[in-house]
Design a protein around this nucleic acid. Structure first.
Lengths: 195, 195
DNA sequence: CCACGCCTTGTCAGCGGCTGACATAGGCCG
DNA sequence: CGGCCTATGTCAGCCGCTGACAAGGCGTGG
């Protein structure tokens, strides 16, 4: 990309953009050669650092693709905290999901290829499930913080995430239909299931 | 346990009970020293084989704890296929869950310690999530095989698994209350969420 | 302006997970 | 009995990942 110089990187390696370079290099290499065939040392080299430095920024090779999760989680928990009092748990969640839709839609150029790599690599898919589970637990926690009891909080969070994940994935595949519309459709379907 | 002899195992290493010995040895060692501090070679040694043999039976160190998943999956998909026609997706699922409760309750002596190890080891918890996701997908597939459309099948499967997992975990923690009762309670709570 | 200390990176050595290739032994079948 | 097939052992080696230590840049306080 212009970042590396194939031996020693003469570029200004000023601040914490090292992290950024590593993430970019990783995604590029994963797409070019596949996750399994790219080594941590290879990623580091393309980013202009050594393997050891890679592992100082990321606890393991998979984690390099999972940075954005925190941002999304913060946005969602904040939205949950701000929701009006009279709503039920599921409505709170869907309101929060809708509120982060623009954020996701802006990130599509990055998240689409990223998602392709993840879904075609078992090791990464596994990590993604763990991240989603953590996010789900965070949502349940945010609901509990509003006074919702444990069981309904957990159930609502899981149901909501089920719908949210389904809508997001199918939107990533074919973006013609907007994310918000998909969310609404999924929400409707969910409620219909208990009728 | 009587299986190993601490050097070379003179035991009759007849058939595929090697697999069994490996699983037992692994669970024992994980409980004694923790997952991270037990090596694949160590497990193999206790089972009376070499490390290489371990990896011929299991694709990786984690997998040694996840054999039963298949049995459960088969039982559930079979129950789904046999359910009466007039039921809705969620009722089909809960019927299936109730039908495998005895199976789980019999397995408790094994699954309780196993679950303790898993839930206290991030690497294993991650694998468990992957297994649960696969099981969820299998349930959705069984529903689709009955003519349920994709979206409701996936949503129902995820909602059902959310309830099933919650009930099972809390039953593992405190078995005083039966698994079936917990399932019913969770199911009721789930339906209340959409009211 | 210098000396000290912190923060980041590099270097090195080493463990453990995991794999491919090849050798060996035991049982079964013709 | 001879050959085959399967299960296991052995060996060499890659890669993920870590701890320990050294080296360099940069800021701060003296």
């Amino acid at each position: 990309m212009s970042v590396t110089d194939k031996g020693r990187a003469v570029v200004a390696k000023g601040g914490d953009d090292v992290r950024d370079r590593l993430q970019r290099a990783a995604l590029e290499l994963f797409r070019e050669h596949g996750y399994d065939r790219t080594t941590a040392a290879g990623i580091a080299a393309r980013a202009g650092v050594t393997e050891r430095t890679f592992f100082r920024y990321f606890p393991d090779k998979r984690e390099v693709l999972f940075e954005g999760a925190v941002v999304l989680q913060d946005a969602l928990t904040a939205a949950i905290a701000e929701a009006p009092q009279e709503l039920g748990p599921l409505d709170i969640l869907f309101r929060a999901f809708r509120s982060v839709a623009p954020l996701l839609e802006n990130n599509r150029p990055y998240s689409k290829p990223r998602n392709d790599v993840i879904s075609s690599t078992p090791a990464l898919a596994e990590r993604e499930l763990a991240k989603l589970a953590a996010l789900t637990e965070a949502l349940a926690g945010a609901l509990r913080a509003r006074g919702v009891a444990d069981l309904p909080a957990v159930l609502a969070a899981r149901m909501g995430m089920a719908a949210f994940a389904y809508a997001t994935i199918s939107w990533l595949e074919k973006p013609e239909q907007g994310l918000v519309e998909r969310l609404d459709a999924t929400s409707r379907e969910l409620k219909a299931l208990l009728a």
